[in-house]
Design a protein around this nucleic acid. Sequence first.
DNA 1: GCTTGACCTGGAGCGCACTCCAGCACCTAC
DNA 2: GTAGGTGCTGGAGTGCGCTCCAGGTCAAGC
Lengths: 138, 138
Amino acid sequence: MYIGELAKTCNVSIDTLRYYEKIGLIKNVPRDAGGRRVYGPSFVAWLNFIKVLKATGMPLKDMLAYAAHRQTGPSSNQDRCDLLQVHELRIKQTIIEQEGCLALVQDKISAYQSAIAKSTDIPISVCMTDHFNKRENK
Amino acid sequence: MYIGELAKTCNVSIDTLRYYEKIGLIKNVPRDAGGRRVYGPSFVAWLNFIKVLKATGMPLKDMLAYAAHRQTGPSSNQDRCDLLQVHELRIKQTIIEQEGCLALVQDKISAYQSAIAKSTDIPISVCMTDHFNKRENK
DNA sequence: GCTTGACCTGGAGCGCACTCCAGCACCTAC
DNA sequence: GTAGGTGCTGGAGTGCGCTCCAGGTCAAGC
């Protein structure tokens, strides 16, 4: 599989694939006689995992740490598992935060809907008090 | 309330507050005799709402559209409500996506845990097949 | 009246994650 | 044998959302 096909298969741009290789997120890509990159199924799997990490907000440099462990083989299984467990927690926190924000947005929508029904402006009371500092506790 | 106090109250930087004003996200800030910005409670409420929108991934230029409607008064209530309802949908989709990714990460963690127990590498089958294109349907 | 600290402005710089470009090589089909 | 498509490289450019800086003003406390 050449780079164009991988890009299509995984729905990322060719430039992104070369960029990921440049920064070390994708490694040891074999080349054909003409110097073109040839990707096997393991690259598809890895790239799909990168997409999961990316979709959950992991920065590329954190993925690089995970990728570095991958290079060292099974001996790094515990380290990789640890990294993923930390990330798992962050995802859970993100979901909780998003749910909280969703509720606030829905409150505001309701306020607008009743304001529209009454043809008035919305009351200041639904103009949001702080939602974050409670959690951040500072 | 001067800018330093607002920054502390809302847990954003002073530079960010001036930046938001520069791009038009915060408008009509009164000044005292010495030219310093003076913020009332409505600015705190607005800033907290901005933080909710930001936390849910709304780009600043979309907030600007909402802010522009706010300037026109109650006549834009329907427009503002529409914008929020579109955003509400996006938040819901984000939560669903995060939950899907969370499940995949958890699968991978489980795979690592059993691999660690057996002292082997993890099987290729849990090296991720595509999770996104199914949904994107292309 | 002087120091200190908070605030002001305009503009430059930064980190991230790409994205684009020029100029070139290779391979296949006609 | 040539046109078109796909690939290569190194490096520059982009958009976003801040963040920092220099050089200055203002107000309060000693």
